[in-house]
Simulated assay, not measured.
Amino acid sequence: MNCNVSECRKTQVNICGQVMRISLRRICKLFLVIVTFILALVLISVTNTERIQTKQIVFTKFVKRSYRRQLSLQKEQQVVDHIKFQRKTNGVNSVADDENLGKDEIVNKNGKIKQNPIQNVKNVMRKTVQSDIFISVKTTKSNRNSRLDLLMETWIPLAKDETYIFTDNDSHIPENFHADHFINTFCADSHYRQGLCCKMAREYDIFMESEKRWFCHVDDDNYVNVPALVGFLQQYNHSDDWYLGRPSISHPMEQKLAFWFATGGAGFCISRGLADKMVPHAGGGRIMTTGDIIRLPDDCTVGYIINHLLKVPLTKIKEFHSHLEGLHRIPQHQLSDQI
Score class of each variant (00 low, 15 high):
His178Leu: 07
Ile339Trp: 02
His281Val: 03
Trp214Phe: 02
Asp170Phe: 00
Asp292Gly: 06
Leu324Thr: 08
Ile15Cys: 08
Tyr164Thr: 04
His281Leu: 10
Gln235Glu: 14
Glu153Tyr: 08
Glu175Asp: 12
Lys88Val: 00
Cys300Thr: 05
Val226Tyr: 03
Leu244Thr: 04
Lys277Leu: 10
Gln130Leu: 15
Met208Phe: 15
Lys103Arg: 06
Val312Asn: 08
Glu76Val: 02
Lys318Phe: 09
Val230Thr: 11
Gln338Tyr: 13
Ile52Phe: 09
Asn48Pro: 01
Glu153Asp: 14
Arg68Met: 09
Ser271Val: 06
Ile156Ala: 04
Leu71Glu: 14
Gly245Asn: 13
Gly195Lys: 05
Val79Pro: 00
Thr89His: 11
Lys141Thr: 09
Ile83Pro: 00
Ser239Val: 09
Thr301Val: 14
Ser239Leu: 13
Arg193Tyr: 01
Pro157Gln: 08
Ala188Arg: 08
Phe261His: 15
His251Val: 07
Cys269Asn: 09
Val33Thr: 10
Tyr243Lys: 07
Val107Lys: 03
Asn176Pro: 00
Asp104Glu: 10
Ser142Trp: 03
Arg144Met: 02
Phe182Leu: 04
Asn4Tyr: 15
Tyr243Cys: 07
Asn307Val: 06
Asp189Val: 02
Thr167Asp: 03
Asn123Ala: 04
Pro174Val: 01
Gln74Glu: 13
Leu151Ala: 09
Met278Leu: 11
Gln119Pro: 00
Leu151Ser: 08
Ala282Asn: 01
Leu335Arg: 12
Val58Tyr: 05
Tyr243Val: 06
Leu233Arg: 01
Arg65Gln: 15
Ile306Cys: 04
Tyr67Lys: 12
Leu233Ile: 07
Gln332Met: 11
Asn90Cys: 10
Trp260Lys: 06
Phe37Lys: 08
Ala159Thr: 10
Val137Leu: 07
Ala282Tyr: 00
Ile22Asn: 11
Asp221Pro: 11
Ala282Leu: 08
Ser131Ala: 08
Glu211Asn: 14
Leu158Ile: 02
Asn108Pro: 03
Phe268Gln: 04
Gln332Arg: 13
Ile287Gly: 00
Ile106His: 00
Ile38Lys: 09
Met288Arg: 09
Val95Thr: 11
Cys300Ser: 07
Gln86Val: 14
Ser146Ile: 10
Glu76Ile: 07
His181Thr: 03
Tyr164Met: 05
Ser136Asp: 03
